[in-house]
Design a protein around this nucleic acid. Structure first.
Lengths: 354, 354
DNA sequence: TTGTAGGCGTTATCAC
DNA sequence: GTGATAACGCCTACAA
């Protein structure tokens, strides 16, 4: 009662109000709003005036209902549990890239945040969006996506784009960065500095990015005819402490590596600490490479050589593709791999074995 | 044509389909869906069966139109330009807190990201939401909000909650953390360690959080009858480099401070580097305190004493209040200040002047 | 070029 | 308790 009263008082203007004030029919106004051809300059002017005067704005829900589209894109963020700082740091630039593109359009951005465990259930996307009304879905994650939940989207013809993740089954549109190439490139650089004995101190072994990087690690060495020491390949959990412990462990292995590739900058920080604690120097004795170009890379000592990921671009490229699909009502099928950039600082140098 | 064809093929089920299959009227079904009283157990059962069989889900747009509510909350994130790492790091936990609450409800979360400059224009919120359909607005930022743009919200009776920011004019509901108290607390701690000469190397001088902290700084010293050295109060831009430069500058001032309060952990990292470069030690010669408990705090050496902000809680508390307002259609008026936590690590110690 | 009217999928108000 | 039926605000044939 009170509620309606309130609304009556300053009801938002509707098409009818505009029609009344401008003296043309609602049909014509709607045509103007949707830039249809064939409207006289005269009525357009009258209508535009009335719209301004009434401060009229179409009600999106009514529009959606009539047109059968929602004009909203959903971003489903799938996170590790517990959430790591590196995860956070990776996601927001993507969101930013997405919104940056979207704000030039009339689409709304709706978001959902879930944990990997939930997301791997087969009805995940069904549950996520069944009570929503969306035109397309962006999926941002770092772990394999259950292809069954993707089938629901296929079934409903809901366009979607994977960002930073893939499914066990080849999917349609996917935006990723070149994990494999980045490692190959950094190893090439280290080989030029005379390094031949490499170690890998990675993050979660079965996380998608890490799998690709481990492959890159092996491929780069193989390509150079360098030996792969399996005992120098370790995996942790992307945290500082895990880098520290794994590096301590590495001191018991043979041969001694002269260059360490790390899963991210945090692990690299831990690795460097372990090296220092053992009385060695970076990069004089051992070179260390991080991943992500997190802000810690600049703060630790020595400043970290690392790899920068084009996160922002991934986001905007992904929505762009999604919007194309939504608007053209066509299904694309393409996988985009964006290149990374190696940032050389002071944690890498010539091998002392050279 | 093709589009409609597609839709016809596997049209989503509507109320009418459920009505036909279950043999009851759409009215009854609607009542069941919205848990109204007075529906017989018998028809409820029939309807629920039909719903499951048809995989029926109400269309939110239609529902919104009929009910006059949108069931969506918008989060407007207002960022510094250029975006600082510390900003990013602060926002996502808030978003997480918000979504965490929201996913227990039937609300959707829609987001918008803007820069401070745009947000300070007087029609900002009007432009942001006029073509949207939202029940309430969350505003996340660190700078003063133009009260004129807030008036638009008041005018339309759109409930809103400010997170981490305030307006020049006292507003309704506001969730903040205790910048002032945090600094007072940390200075108390340092005074106990014998410090009497304090410097402040802050971030942006007119950013809200910083203003409160600078006040806290002065108030804490005044309370203790300690002298405030205005020449030891400097402001920068929250970046490492700025902390470094300002600290170098401080070496030319008199007296020499024995404890430095910094704008954030990055600035503290720069400050520590400058101290080391000048041949002094932390904390033996000078104690340093950061802010935020960013991950860098653990990585730098010595590990940083800093202040942790309850970001997650701010988010969930804010939506909770907002939802209360939306549902009760009542306007609250309350300002909530959440306490911070001092994290003591190794960058602070006894004053050598003690 | 324009107006009319039916439809989009729900909810809510009536009678019954 | 339940079933018609009129909103909700906009779009789009269709007819004029």
């Amino acid at each position: 009662m009170d509620k309606n009263h309130n609304k009556k008082l300053k009801r938002r203007a509707t098409l009818f109000d505009v029609a009344k004030l401008s003296g043309v029919s609602t049909g014509t106004i709607s045509r103007i709003l949707n830039n249809h051809h064939s409207v006289s300059e005269e009525s357009r002017k009258k209508v535009e005036e009335a719209i301004k005067k009434l401060n009229y704005v179409p009600l999106s829900a009514a529009r959606s209902l009539a047109k059968g589209v929602s004009n909203t894109i959903m971003l489903s963020i799938i996170e590790e549990n517990p959430i790591l700082p590196s995860t956070w740091r990776y996601e927001l630039p993507v969101v930013q890239g997405i919104y940056d593109y979207l704000k030039k359009t009339s689409y709304n951005l709706q978001i959902g945040i879930s944990f990997v465990e939930e997301a791997q259930k087969s009805k995940f996307f069904e549950n996520l969006i069944k009570d929503k009304y969306i035109d397309g879905l962006l999926i941002l994650g770092s772990w394999p996506i259950n292809y069954r939940s993707l089938l629901y989207l296929e079934d409903r013809s809901i366009p979607y784009v994977l960002i930073g993740c893939k499914s066990t089954v080849p999917t349609r549109v996917e935006i990723n960065f070149d994990n494999h190439g980045a490692i190959v490139q950094v190893i090439d650089y280290l080989v030029q500095l005379g390094h031949t004995k490499f170690a890998l101190i990675g993050g979660f072994a079965d996380q998608l990015h890490m799998v690709d990087r481990a492959n890159g690690f092996r491929d780069a060495l193989t390509k150079r005819n360098l030996r792969i020491y399996e005992n120098l390949i370790k995996f942790g959990d992307y945290q500082i402490e895990s880098g520290y412990q794994l590096m301590l462990g590495l001191f018991n292995e043979y041969p001694k590596p002269t260059a360490i590739i790390c899963g991210n900058d945090f692990m690299a920080a831990g690795v460097i600490k372990a090296i220092h604690d053992k009385g060695y120097k970076v990069p004089e004795d051992i070179s260390v490479v991080g991943f992500d170009d997190n802000e810690v890379a600049k703060v630790i000592s020595p400043p970290l050589t690392t790899i920068r990921v084009p996160v922002f671009e991934m986001g905007s490229l992904a929505v762009e593709k999604l919007c194309t699909m939504v608007q053209s009502n066509r299904k694309l099928k393409e996988i985009t791999i964006l290149p990374c950039e190696t940032i050389i600082r002071s944690s890498t140098g010539k091998s002392k074995e050279k």
